[in-house]
Nucleic acid binder design. Structure first.
Length: 925
RNA sequence: GGGCCUGUAGCUCAGCUGGCUAGAGCACACGACUGAUAAUCGUGAGGUCGGUGGUUCGAGUCCACCUAGGCCCA
C-alpha cells in the first residue's frame, strides 16, 4: 500500500516563487484598500514619538538608485521603530524651488521665455515641480515606503514659503542678515549673474603679463643682503584688466622666496621654486641675492604700479607653484580666492566694473572702457610706468556664458549674507555639532571642518523661482530696508497666498501704512528682486515642517541622508536652526555612502554602468532591492550589479523557502490550542528555541544600532545553517511520520511556529512585501498587517547555555559523521543517509557526551541506526577535528520501512502493514 | 591640490582593545535525494587580508609612505 497519504507532509498554497514584480503591486493595492497608513497612525496613538525628518529630494526627473537607497533606509528605520513600539510618522518632502527647474522651464519655453512675466514664469515652475513630485511619489510608493504621501511637504507650498520667509525675518531681527559684496560669474553681455551651472568652459586667448610691484620700504629687514634696496614683487596674471582693482599680493605661508638681481638692473622677488621658469618666461637672466621665508614679507606694503595706492603682502594657502611667480595678484572683487583672503584680512571687496562690464567713469585711465578692451590699455600703462616685465598671449580654458557664449568675468556684486560671526553663529554651531550623535562617527569631523572654515552664507540669488527676500529699497535714497517686523508680516502674507504675490503686488501693499525711509524719510519703496538660496529653503524645514505639524516635533530624532549632505542639508539645517533657535535641529545624523557599480566606480550615463531602480524592480522586485539596501554596509559606498542582485535574489529565495516550508508544516497547527510548553520539549527543540533567542537578540540589536547588514547576515545564516541544514532537516522525520497530534510533532510545530512568527516580524521592515504575504498565511489570531505588529519579545528564560554548549559539540561530531557518510556515498555503500548505520568510537568527554544522548544519535545524524562501539568496521573514517573519534559507516541492517524510509530489523510485525516499522505502525494505527 | 572616508576569497560581510594553520553565507565543482523538487542535503576547491617599509617576540589588526576608488571643496 502507498503510505504517503498517511504522512503529514507539508501543505501550503504559499508559492515557492516570489514573482515579486507581479505580486508587489497587488499588495500595494491591498494596503491602499485597507488604508494601512491610517491604521499605522491609529496604532501609534499614545506611544512615544520617534521623528525621522525627511530630507527633500529635488523635484526634477525620475528617481535614481541613490534616491531608492535613501528612502528605503529611512523606511527600514521607521518600520523598525514602529515595531519597537514608537509612533514613527513619516512625512516625505520635496525641494521645489531653484535654478534647475527654472532653467528647464525656460528651455521648454524656447524663445517665448522673453514674452512672459516673472509671475507667469513661476506658475510654470510650480506646475513643473508638481508634475515631478507626482512622478517621484509613485516611484517611491512602489518601493513599499510607508508615509503620508497624501500630505507631503513641498517647499513651494504657501505655508512652507511663509515659514521660509519668516526664518529669514528672524535672521534680520537678530542682526545675522546683512548686505555685502561677493564676486560672482557675471555675463556683461546679458547683464546678469550666472550660476555655476550656467557657465561653460572653452578655450580663450588672454594676455599673460608679469608685473612689478615695488616694495615701499627698505628690504634690509627681510635679508641683510637686501639692505638699501627696494626690490619689486612680481605678479603674473592673465587678466590685466583686474589690476586696477588690485589690493594685495598673496604669498604661500610655507614657501621660500628669493630676491633676484636681473641683468636689467631690477631686483625682483619671486618664489624660489619658480625662479627658473620665471626667468625663462621673461627671457632674462638673474642672480639670487637672498633667500627667505615668505613670513618675513607678511603685511609689508608694495606700491600699485600705476595708482597712488598700496598693495599689501598677505599669506594664503591657495598660492601654488603650478605657474606664475608664487606672488599672486589679489583683487578681492574679481576672484573667489582673492575674495576669501580679502574677507579674512578685512580688505574692501572692491569692484570698479559696472553691469555692462565697463569701468566706472571715475576710474582713472580706464573709465568707461570695456574690460576686455581695457587689457591692452592696462598693458600700455604698465609699459609706460616701467612695471611690465613680460607680456605675451596665451590660450587657456576660460568660463563663458552658456547663453550668449561670450567670455564672462568675475565681479563683486551686492548680495545678502548670513554672518557666521554675528551672534557667534559659528561658535554655537560648532558646539552644537558636539551635541549631535553622528553615525558613522567621522561625520562629526567632516561637518566640523566645514563649519569651522566656511565664509558667511550667501543666501541671495538673482533668479525668479524661489522665496523672495522681503527687503525694500527707498526709491529716493536707495536705502535698504530689511526690517524684521515688516518681513514677518510679509511672511504671513506668503503663508496665505504663496510668495507669488511678491511679483504681483506693489511694494506699498506689503508695507504698513505710513512706512517711511529711516534714512531720508520719504515713503516710496521698491521690492528687492533677489530670491533665497534653495539651501535656505530646505534648511528651514525644521521650522516649516517639524514645528508646524502636530505629529512631528523639533529637534528631530534623526536626519538620514547621503554623505554629500554634510555640506548640503545637514549644514544648512544646522545653521538655520542654530541661528534662530540656538540648537541643532537633529539629535542623530545618519549618513550613507553613494551607490557605485560592481567595480566600485561611480555610475555615469556615458560609461553605461547605471542601474535604475525601475529596472531592478521589474526584474527582481522591490523586496530584493530592499534586501540589497539591508545587506550592504551603507556607511561606505555601496555597490550594485547584476551579480550582486542575482546573489541577493538567491538569498531572498532561501529566506522565502524557509518560511514556505514552515508554513507547510504548521498548516494543521493552531497556536492557541496546540502549543507544547517549553519545559516539555525535547532537547533538540529547546536547542532551536535557544538559537532563535540568540537571533532575536542579534537582530533587535542591529535595528537599534542601525546596522542592517548584520541583521541580513544573521537571518540568512539562521535560515541556512541552524534551520534548513540542521533543525528542519532532522525534524522532517518527526513531523512527517509521527501521529498528527502527537506531542512530539506538536512540539516541533510549536518551535517552527515561533521561529516563523519571530522571523517574519524581524524581517518585515526590510522584506515588507514578503513578510506581509507570509503573515497572511500564518495560523493564529494576529494583527491585520505585520506592519501593525511589534517585534517579538525577548524571552531570555528560554536560553540554556549548558544545553547549547553540549549541542555545539554534537554538531561538530555530526559534521564528522557527514564526512564519513560522504565517503561511504562515494564508495556506493549508501545513497541517502537513511541507508546507513553509523558506529562511533570515541574517547574521554566526547564518549561521555555521546553516551548521554545515545538514543538521539540516529535522529540527529538522520541515519537508520547509530551508536557507540568499541571497535568500528565498515567504511571507517578517522576524524580530523576531534581527537580519537572514528566513524564506521555500513549499510543499515534490516529492511526499509515503506513509510518512514528508515531501515528496521523489525518489519512485518503486523499482517495488515507488513512493510512498515513498529514506530510507523503506532502512528498509523 | 586640500578635508573626510574606504580597499579581507568571484559576490556580500565577520574578524573587540595586535596572539592559534584568516572565518560565514552565497556563487562554483562534484555527489546524494526525488516526501521543501525550477526545492533540499552533503563534500570539496577558493585569500601573498590593495602595495611597500617600519614598530613588536608576534600585525589583517598599530605607524609612515605609495596605489586604487568615493564624497565634498579648490
Amino acid at each position: 500500500m502507498d503510505y504517503k497519504d498517511t504522512l503529514n507532509l507539508p501543505d501550503t498554497k504559499f508559492p515557492m516563487k516570489g514573482n515579486l514584480p507581479q505580486r508587489e503591486p497587488e499588495m500595494l493595492k491591498q494596503w491602499a484598500e485597507v488604508d494601512i497608513h491610517n491604521k499605522i497612525e491609529e496604532a501609534g496613538k499614545g506611544k512615544p514619538r520617534y521623528v525621522l525628518h525627511d530630507g527633500p529630494p529635488y523635484a526634477n526627473g525620475h528617481i535614481h538608485i541613490g534616491h531608492a537607497l535613501n528612502k528605503i533606509l529611512k523606511d527600514i528605520v521607521l518600520k523598525s521603530k514602529r515595531m519597537e513600539g514608537f509612533a514613527a510618522p513619516y512625512v516625505p518632502g520635496w525641494d521645489c524651488h531653484g535654478l534647475p527647474i527654472e532653467l528647464q522651464v525656460e528651455k521648454n519655453l524656447g524663445s517665448k521665455k522673453h514674452e512672459i512675466s516673472k509671475l507667469e514664469m513661476r506658475k510654470l515652475c510650480r506646475e513643473y515641480a508638481a508634475k515631478f513630485v507626482g512622478i517621484q511619489r509613485a516611484e517611491f510608493e512602489r518601493l513599499g515606503i510607508f508615509g503620508d504621501w497624501d500630505e507631503p511637504y513641498l517647499t513651494m507650498n504657501a505655508s512652507y514659503e511663509g515659514a521660509t520667509a519668516r526664518e529669514l525675518a528672524r535672521f534680520a531681527e537678530n542682526g545675522g542678515l546683512y548686505k555685502g559684496k561677493k564676486p560672482v560669474h557675471w555675463c556683461s553681455s546679458c547683464g546678469t549673474a550666472l550660476a555655476e551651472a550656467e557657465v561653460e568652459y572653452a578655450d580663450h586667448k588672454s594676455p599673460s603679463v608679469f608685473v612689478k610691484f615695488a616694495l615701499k620700504e627698505d628690504a634690509g629687514s627681510v635679508a641683510p643682503e637686501l639692505a638699501g634696496k627696494k626690490p619689486s614683487m612680481v605678479i603674473w596674471t592673465t587678466t590685466p584688466w583686474t589690476l586696477p582693482a588690485n589690493l594685495a599680493i598673496a604669498l604661500h605661508p610655507e614657501l621660500d622666496y628669493v630676491a633676484l638681481a636681473l641683468n636689467s638692473g631690477d631686483v625682483v622677488i619671486v618664489a624660489d621654486g619658480l625662479k627658473e621658469s620665471f626667468l625663462k618666461e621673461i627671457g632674462a637672466e638673474g642672480e639670487v641675492l637672498a633667500k627667505f621665508p615668505s613670513k618675513l614679507l607678511e603685511k609689508k606694503l608694495a606700491r600699485h604700479p600705476f595708482y597712488d595706492q598700496d598693495s599689501v603682502i598677505l599669506l594664503g594657502e591657495h598660492v601654488t607653484l603650478e605657474a606664475g611667480t608664487g606672488c599672486v595678484h589679489t583683487a578681492p572683487g574679481h576672484g573667489q580666492e582673492d575674495y576669501e583672503l580679502g574677507l579674512q584680512e578685512g580688505l574692501d571687496i572692491y569692484n570698479p566694473v559696472d553691469n555692462r562690464g565697463r569701468f566706472y567713469e571715475n576710474i582713472e585711465f580706464f573709465g568707461g572702457q570695456f574690460v576686455f578692451d581695457a587689457n591692452k590699455n592696462v598693458i600700455e600703462k604698465l609699459t609706460e610706468v616701467g612695471a611690465l616685465l613680460g607680456s605675451k598671449e596665451i590660450s587657456h580654458s576660460y568660463p563663458h556664458c552658456w547663453r550668449c557664449k561670450k567670455p564672462v568675468i568675475f565681479r563683486a556684486t551686492e548680495q545678502w549674507f548670513i554672518s557666521m560671526e554675528k551672534n557667534d553663529l559659528r561658535g554655537k554651531a560648532l558646539s552644537e555639532i558636539n551635541n549631535v550623535n553622528w553615525i558613522p562617527k567621522w561625520g562629526r569631523e567632516r561637518i566640523y571642518g566645514m563649519i569651522e572654515n566656511r565664509p558667511d552664507w550667501c543666501v541671495s540669488r538673482q533668479r525668479s523661482w524661489g522665496v523672495p527676500i522681503a527687503a525694500f529699497y527707498c526709491k529716493s535714497c536707495g536705502h535698504v530696508m530689511a526690517d524684521g517686523k515688516i518681513m514677518h508680516q510679509v511672511a504671513d502674507l506668503f503663508a496665505e497666498h504663496t510668495s507669488d504675490i511678491w511679483y504681483d503686488w506693489d511694494a506699498a501693499k506689503f508695507l504698513p501704512e505710513g512706512t517711511s525711509c529711516p534714512s531720508c524719510g520719504k515713503n516710496e519703496f521698491e521690492k528687492e528682486g533677489d530670491i533665497l538660496d534653495v539651501w535656505f529653503d530646505s534648511g528651514t524645514s525644521h521650522a516649516a515642517v517639524l514645528e508646524l505639524r502636530d505629529n512631528l516635533g523639533s529637534p528631530a530624532d534623526m536626519y538620514l541622508e547621503g554623505s554629500d549632505q554634510h555640506r548640503g542639508w545637514f549644514h544648512s539645517s544646522l545653521l538655520a536652526s542654530v541661528g534662530t533657535r540656538g540648537r541643532a535641529p537633529y539629535k542623530n545624523v545618519l549618513t550613507h555612502g553613494f551607490v557605485m557599480d560592481g567595480a566600485g566606480r561611480k555610475m555615469s550615463k556615458s560609461v553605461g554602468n547605471v542601474v535604475a531602480p525601475e529596472d531592478v524592480i521589474k526584474k527582481f522586485g522591490a523586496d530584493v532591492l530592499r534586501l540589497w539596501v539591508a545587506a550592504q554596509d551603507y556607511r561606505d559606498d555601496l555597490r550594485i550589479s547584476q551579480e550582486i542582485l542575482t546573489r541577493l535574489s538567491e538569498s531572498y529565495r532561501r529566506i522565502r523557502n524557509t518560511c514556505r516550508y514552515i508554513l507547510g508544516n504548521i498548516h494543521d497547527f493552531n497556536p492557541d490550542t496546540d502549543c507544547v510548553p517549553f519545559a516539555e520539549m525535547p532537547e533538540l527543540d529547546r536547542w532551536a528555541m535557544h538559537q532563535l533567542e540568540l537571533l532575536k537578540e542579534k537582530v533587535l540589536a542591529s535595528y537599534t544600532d542601525s546596522e542592517f547588514h548584520i541583521l541580513y547576515h544573521a537571518v540568512n545564516g539562521f535560515c541556512t545553517v541552524e534551520m534548513s541544514a540542521f533543525y528542519l532537516d532532522i525534524l522532517k522525520d518527526r513531523v512527517y511520520t509521527s501521529k498528527k497530534d502527537s506531542q512530539a510533532r506538536r512540539s516541533g510545530q510549536t518551535v517552527m511556529y515561533k521561529v516563523l512568527d519571530a522571523l517574519v516580524r524581524m524581517v518585515a521592515p526590510v522584506l515588507s512585501f514578503t513578510a506581509e504575504e507570509v503573515w497572511a498565511e500564518m495560523p493564529g489570531t494576529r494583527e491585520a498587517s505585520v506592519h501593525l505588529a511589534l517585534f517579538p519579545a525577548l524571552t531570555p528564560e528560554v536560553k540554556d547555555e549548558a544545553l547549547a554548549g553540549r549541542w555545539e559539540k554534537i554538531i561538530k561530531i555530526r559534521s564528522e559523521v557527514s564526512k564519513a557518510l560522504e565517503l561511504a556515498r562515494v564508495k556506493k555503500v549508501i545513497g541517502h543517509s537513511l541507508d546507513a548505520a553509523v558506529a562511533i568510537k570515541a574517547t574521554g568527554d566526547t564518549e561521555a557526551l555521546l553516551k548521554e544522548c545515545a538514543d538521539q544519535l540516529a535522529e540527529i545524524f538522520i541515519v537508520s541506526k547509530a551508536g557507540l562501539a568499541g571497535e568500528v568496521s565498515g567504511e571507517v573514517y578517522v576524524a580530523e577535528g576531534i581527537e580519537g573519534l572514528e566513524v564506521g559507516v555500513s549499510a543499515a541492517p534490516g529492511e526499509k520501512c515503506e513509510r518512514c524510509w528508515c531501515y528496521s530489523e523489525e518489519l512485518g510485525k503486523d499482517a495488515e502493514h507488513a512493510g512498515i516499522c513498529p514506530k510507523c505502525l503506532a502512528a498509523v494505527k
